[in-house]
Design a binder for these strands. Structure first.
Ligand SMILES: [Zn+2]
Ligand SMILES: [Zn+2]
Ligand SMILES: [Zn+2]
Ligand SMILES: [Zn+2]
Lengths: 141, 141
DNA sequence: TACACTATTGCAACTATGTTGCAAAATGTT
DNA sequence: AACATTTTGCAACATAGTTGCAATAGTGTA
């Protein structure tokens, strides 16, 4: 884990700092997307709020994580897959929000479907967010 | 206009107040979705910030307007079509955000396409937000 | 390892956004 | 007009996010 994180930071041309390691750790330990508050809980009192904001922004810029738009306008972050790089995200997958456990997941293998635009409108990016019951919650009820 | 607004409020079982009239007016005058700040600008100093928040919430509850999730997590509101009623929205259309003029539109006639969920996931609601260049901006450049 | 250079962090202060309780004012009904 | 009910404004609070700057930590080089 430790080494995997260090490699990722090096590959992204980022210096290895305690906060970056700890914050990345949060993402590798959780399979779902994280809100700023989740990360604050995970890293505890170790780092300043501001550091977390700046670190997350850095990770987004470097293509390490991506943000997820949600209907209730909370900001969520999740790890990007390898195809993302600095200044160029390739996150065209669908996101799923569970109404029961309230977790948000990247459905890596579900590509956002095409949609026919009215005349005059040119689409450059499409976000799709699905809510419902996740596979874990469906299995345990 | 005035009469149209009064009728809409009566139909929704809401009392006719100055703030509700003025805020609804904002929506009828604009063809694009409005942020809280836009409405604050439109109504000027006439009403308190809190009143605007509460009025918008009331309108959402009554099925008069709906919220639009955006990738940058701003809250936007737009008029619902007639099929929406108190406690039951029917807004399954695609939303479009123009990268040029920065306005957001309801594409009333573009229905959110179906998407195939992985095993175990049950979808109950789907939001699709497209960004790009709108028809007005494409026509004038 | 020590040094110098640069990048990162913490702090404090600030802005923006949204919420709550309560008394005053406006609305609808009789 | 008088009453009961909603709605509004105010003040205070809560949460989220940003900025400038000085202190600190990380990196590459000698
Ligand atoms: Zn779930
Ligand atoms: Zn994702
Ligand atoms: Zn436009
Ligand atoms: Zn809409």
């Amino acid at each position: 884990m430790e080494q995997k994180i260090i490699d990722l930071l090096k590959r992204s041309n980022l210096s290895i700092t305690d906060s970056r390691k700890k914050i990345l750790e949060s993402f590798f330990q959780e399979d779902s997307a994280l809100a700023h508050a989740d990360i604050e809980n995970h890293v505890g009192q170790d780092f300043d709020r501001v550091t977390i904001y700046r670190t997350l922004q850095t990770f987004v810029d470097k293509g390490i994580i991506h943000t997820i738009p949600t209907p209730d306008n909370a900001v969520l972050y999740a790890l990007c897959k390898d195809s993302c790089s600095a200044g160029h995200h390739h996150d065209n997958h669908v996101h799923f929000i569970c109404d029961n456990c309230n977790k948000t997941f990247c459905l890596e293998h579900v590509v956002v479907p095409a949609v026919h635009m009215p005349v005059g409108f040119a689409a450059s990016q499409i976000d799709m967010v699905v809510s419902g019951i996740c596979n874990y919650c469906n299995a345990t009820t």
